[in-house]
């Protein structure tokens, strides 16, 4: 069976130089996979290339979603095919309310979830529907960013550093949400992380990216036990 997401020898870069030198990774339906690596390893670049962002420029290789190549498709088209991307930095539309943020998603998706069904996963947000995103805490904004991605009812969700800079108890809450989305909504998730503990808590399988290449593909068990591996590529 073809994997849901198949990244094959992906090379990409910016004007300042090439960043990815042949990234290979596969994510099967229903999986929850993490992409680990140090700062500057190319994690975000990989995600942005998959999502069809304006930068980086893809130089070679292929990205296939359910067998079809995504290369050359603009971001809105990639989203239309069922991939929902949450960029890093918990981006929301600051001057729109919680409901409006989610509504924008719903209005532009082919097969969206209902507002209430989305907010069911986020009781915290359901209590602050009219609040503007700019007045919310970092953790709430991250939840809203995920809620917005969920609202499009995607088949694959890409999360770029969803736990970055959040307090430990909020990290745990977001971990729960991601697992919940994966299990209950049957949405495949690929997320980028530097925080090994959070990755271990959530994902079943991990790719390690170093200097623009996938250097290891490991199970949670190996990642937990192999200290030299963690030292070498992740510095922990």
């Amino acid at each position: 069976m073809t994997p849901l997401l198949d990244v094959d020898g992906l090379e990409a870069g910016y004007e300042t130089g090439q960043v990815l030198f042949g990234v290979d990774l596969r994510v099967d339906r229903g999986e929850l996979v993490s992409l680990l690596g140090r700062n500057g390893a190319g994690k975000s670049t990989t995600m942005r290339a998959i999502a069809g962002a304006k930068t980086p420029r893809v130089l070679g290789g292929d990205v296939r979603f359910d067998g079809d190549s995504l290369l050359g498709s603009p971001a809105y088209d990639v989203a239309g095919r069922g991939i929902s991307f949450v960029p890093e930095g918990r981006r929301c539309f600051p001057r729109l309310s919680v409901e409006e943020n989610v509504r924008v998603s719903i209005n532009h998706a082919e097969n969206p979830m209902a507002m209430e069904a989305v907010l069911d996963h986020f009781p915290e947000l359901a209590e602050m529907r009219a609040k503007h995103a700019r007045n919310m805490s970092g953790g709430e904004q991250q939840m809203l960013a995920i809620a917005r991605a969920l609202a499009t009812n995607p088949r694959l969700m890409l999360l770029d550093e969803p736990f970055e800079g959040l307090a430990p108890y909020i990290v745990r809450r977001i971990e729960d949400i991601v697992e919940d989305i994966n299990e209950q909504q049957d949405i495949t998730v690929l997320f980028v992380e530097q925080n090994v503990a959070a990755a271990l808590a959530v994902a079943d399988r991990h790719y390690i990216l170093d200097e623009g290449r996938i250097v290891e593909e490991v199970t949670s068990r190996r990642l937990r036990e192999d200290e030299t591996l963690r030292q070498r590529y992740l510095g922990v």
Binding site: A79, G80, P87, L96, H108, E110
Partner: peptide
């Protein structure tokens, strides 16, 4: 209207609006 809210979304964060499936 939803159209107007979408315009604000474009203003606030164009890349994000694209990532959400909006033909900006």
């Amino acid at each position: 209207s939803p159209f107007g809210r979408s315009l604000v979304a474009v203003r606030e964060n164009e890349g994000l609006a694209r990532a959400m499936g909006m033909n900006v």
